[in-house]
Amino acid sequence: MILEELAIAVETGDMKKVQALIPQGLADGVDPQDLLDKGLLAGMAALGARFKAGEVFVPEVLIAARALNAGTVLLKDKLVAGQSVSKGKVVIATVSGDLHDIGKNLVLMMLESTGFEVIDLGVDVPVEAVVEAVRENKPDILAMSALLTTTMAFQKDIVEALKVAGLRDGLKIMIGGAPVTQDFCDNIGADSYSPDAPGAADAALALLS
């Protein structure tokens, strides 16, 4: 029951309710991992489905993410390391010369709510920094965003730079952003393109299945 309430609180962006329900759940002996997976993340996943269906929009997703984050902060010290099974590790970035972060952040939220571990490099990330982050973190997936036609070419540069660095094999590459198309994805040798954030989470699951 409390898990359902928690999920609904996230889905409706009710941060105060989340902050009340987490301590209550812990006091009642609910497994912290269940509070995370079946409460917080389940709520975000439900909202993601409604976002994909065009029933809710960016403000509702951001307000839900705020509630989710408030809940995860309260759970941080309670979760047992290793108990959570990650769906995979993703490094995400908006490419060089591009300061747009909202699309990237929506994808990040959807990936996290689907169970991926996500390392966010931020915006305006140079090609070399992306390559270095892949070398260092050894992700399963690299996800790249570009909102401008003038910056989308950096997605190609990064694919090429990863090949030169010997890091392309075994790495799945996802791309997105308003000017990006499936044709462009195929052309630059990326593995997956998604036109929207919930679709990106589905695509990430498909890539690793």
């Binding site: 960016v58 403000p59 951001l62 307000i63």
Partner: peptide, 11 residues
């Protein structure tokens, strides 16, 4: 900032 605006329109 676009994200802040989107949050604040709700809050």
């Amino acid at each position: 900032g676009i994200s802040e605006f989107m949050l604040n329109i709700m809050l």
